[in-house]
Lab assay of single mutants.
Amino acid sequence: TLFEALYDYEARTEDDLSFHKGEKFQILNSSEGDWWEARSLTTGETGYIPSIYLAPV
């Protein structure tokens, strides 16, 4: 399942991933609670993103 960003997000740590509204992600690991490891389909970068900023596509 792909997810789309509902809002912009600016990374706060080196493990976080910055993204823009409308960016799409492949989720790599969603077992860490509210922060999911994801790969951006726009940039190819991976990192942790807040799941509350996402909606399934």
Rank of each mutant, 00 (worst) to 15 (best):
V57Y: 10
L41V: 09
A38G: 09
G33I: 11
Q26R: 08
Y7D: 09
T46A: 08
I52D: 13
P56D: 05
S40T: 03
S31I: 10
S51T: 07
T46M: 09
G33M: 13
T43S: 10
Y48K: 14
A38F: 03
E4W: 09
A55L: 08
G22Y: 06
Q26K: 09
E4D: 02
P50K: 12
L17N: 01
L6A: 04
N29H: 08
N29M: 07
E45P: 00
F19I: 09
G22C: 05
T43K: 03
F19G: 01
A38L: 04
A55N: 07
S30Q: 12
D34Y: 15
K24M: 13
A55I: 15
T1N: 14
E32T: 13
Q26L: 14
S51V: 11
D16T: 14
A11F: 03
S30C: 10
L2E: 07
E45I: 10
T42H: 09
Y7C: 10
R39L: 12
G44A: 05
P50R: 10
H20K: 15
A38S: 04
D8R: 04
Y48W: 15
R12M: 11
F19W: 02
W36I: 05
H20C: 07
T46V: 14
S18V: 03
D16K: 15
E37A: 07
I27H: 01
Q26M: 14
S51R: 13
A5I: 01
V57H: 06
D16W: 08
K24C: 08
L6N: 04
Y53D: 02
E32P: 09
E4P: 00
L17F: 14
A55H: 10
I49S: 01
Y9W: 09
E4G: 03
Y53V: 06
D8Q: 05
T13S: 14
S30H: 11
Y53G: 06
Q26T: 11
T42E: 14
I49D: 00
Y9C: 04
L17A: 02
Y7W: 13
G22F: 05
R12C: 11
Y48N: 07
T1I: 14
E23Y: 04
A55K: 14
L2D: 04
R39F: 10
D16V: 15
E45Q: 15
H20M: 11
L17S: 02
R39S: 07
S40H: 07
W35I: 10
T13W: 13
E23S: 04
K24T: 09
T43R: 04
I52T: 14
E37V: 15
L28Q: 04
R12W: 08
R12E: 12
K24I: 15
F19N: 00
P56Y: 06
E10A: 11
G44I: 01
T46N: 05
A38K: 00
S30L: 10
I27T: 02
S40A: 06
I27K: 03
A55S: 11
W36Q: 02
E10R: 09
G22D: 03
F25P: 00
F3T: 02
I27R: 03
S30P: 08
P56W: 05
D16L: 11
K21L: 05
F25Y: 02
E23N: 05
T1Y: 12
S40D: 03
H20T: 14
R39N: 05
S30R: 13
V57G: 04
I49K: 00
R12I: 12
A55Q: 12
T13M: 14
G47W: 04
V57A: 08
L41C: 09
H20F: 14
K21F: 04
A11N: 06
L41K: 04
E14I: 10
A5N: 00
E23G: 02
F3I: 02
Y53A: 14
Y7T: 10
S51W: 13
E37C: 11
G47H: 07
E4N: 04
T1A: 13
L2F: 12
I52K: 15
T13Y: 15
T42M: 10
G33Q: 13
E23V: 02
F3W: 15
V57S: 09
T43N: 06
S31V: 11
H20A: 11
G47L: 05
L28K: 05
F25A: 00
S18M: 04
Y9V: 03
H20I: 12
W36S: 01
K21P: 03
S18A: 07
P50C: 10
L6R: 06
W36D: 01
L28R: 03
E4C: 08
E32G: 15
P56M: 09
L17Q: 03
F19V: 06
E14C: 08
N29I: 06
S40G: 03
T43I: 01
T43E: 01
L54K: 01
R39H: 08
T42Q: 10
E14K: 12
L41Y: 07
F19R: 00
T13I: 07
Y48Q: 09
W35E: 05
Y9F: 09
P50L: 15
W35N: 07
E4T: 09
A55D: 04
R39A: 07
